[in-house]
Design a protein around this nucleic acid. Sequence first.
DNA 1: GTAGCCTACTGGTCAGACCAGTGCACTAGC
DNA 2: GCTAGTGCACTGGTCTGACCAGTAGGCTAC
Lengths: 250, 250
Amino acid sequence: MGGPRFEPVRTVRAYERIVEQIEEAVEGGALPPGARLPSERDLMAQFGVSRSTVREALRVLQARGLVRSRPGDPNGAEVLPFSPAALHKSMTTLARVDELSLGELVQFRMVLDASANLLAARLRTEAELAEMDAAIGRMREAVETGYDAFSAADVAFHDAVARASRNKLIQICTDVVRSIVLGLIAGKIAGSDDREALMRQSIRHHEEVLAAVRAGDGPLAARLSRRTMYDYYVGYVPAGERAALRALLE
Amino acid sequence: MGGPRFEPVRTVRAYERIVEQIEEAVEGGALPPGARLPSERDLMAQFGVSRSTVREALRVLQARGLVRSRPGDPNGAEVLPFSPAALHKSMTTLARVDELSLGELVQFRMVLDASANLLAARLRTEAELAEMDAAIGRMREAVETGYDAFSAADVAFHDAVARASRNKLIQICTDVVRSIVLGLIAGKIAGSDDREALMRQSIRHHEEVLAAVRAGDGPLAARLSRRTMYDYYVGYVPAGERAALRALLE
DNA sequence: GTAGCCTACTGGTCAGACCAGTGCACTAGC
DNA sequence: GCTAGTGCACTGGTCTGACCAGTAGGCTAC
């Protein structure tokens, strides 16, 4: 107390400094998506390090989804537009290390989707309503076509709702969590033989949700969307976790 | 149509194969947290590649938060318990690159916090209620102590609620988004001179939320928590984005 | 028995090399 | 003149071999 405040020194690796600098340039807009980094040999000269060090930095940046490099490309690494791939990757890891249960994921989807519907009911345009309507139409056709087409149309509906919420974070998280959930239950889907009944019920539910969104009744749309998702996924969720899902159905 | 189905070959880099293998071992539980990887020179022999290739793979794994290596450690890289650090990093990048607006972030916090409260109202234990109570107590004391202590106590309250929701995804996302929001408004806080009034109002609001959680009234707790966060942050949000926030207040 | 040194490792970095692939300028043929 | 084809210069991916600073643990001297 009172003396000079020392803080522990952290030895910072050379490649980390390079990552920081390039990251800052990308996030600050100095390197917009589509821009090219200098070649590794140029970077090596600019940063005054060896090529291995430059490459380790580039590997980190690539793992974070900021750049991509192709062998032989005379232009150097390309700065990528942001994609949720890295987000997706780390969330998938989280789910695979078994820290996340299917119940938690479905619950999170219910939360996100309900919020998206709540916002969409207030902010949606006519074009977006038409898009949702079209998606439900494709769901109807897909009852005969098969599960894959049905699932794709279902995804399209929820995507349209998420976009109508005007919140990019909701859109991205919805997308990421959904694909993880679908991946987890992918094997189990073929097993259920009352699949057609489930699809028909789901279509009915989606129609009700859409009606609420169209009417501008956010709370109703949110409540219905939670119910829709619950009914659709509850069969895959272990019995012990279902109570937590029902807690969202008020 | 009808001929043999060829799929495009993707040249896969050597280091990617290494990443895959180690990643699989970690996620599959063969390498539990705390376990040590062989040394780089051993890995180089096991995978039949050069050390640079091994190192690039380790850099990627490190960027994903799966392992950590210390120079001089005779035991090789350490397998880490999962931490949301990577998730945090990619979401922060998203906020910075994709220009997530403060409004969107606050809106997302409102959604998460409301859901956490909804669930907590049903699932909370007495111990968790006591924890929330203690946090509010520290907020009261901090009105005099200063903003930092107040903010820390506020964080503790919301963390306790998130934990009580029993949903790790909600906890992690809450944590990540909150730290981004706090980072964005960090500079602006000192400016407001009616800070004390804002703190006192916030304490009152938190007390109401806690009462609802204690009473088991989830919908009420959710509604109040949205209002609490709205009132606390609306001053930092550009006027044009406030309408979207109000859309959540039903 | 313990304090301190020594050694055999570790990861971080460097230098220099080779290879397969790419884009572009140049050239041969029309 | 224009196009098709060919080199060439350069890229990233990988390898080899080396040096350094740091660490842990055994060994030695007290």
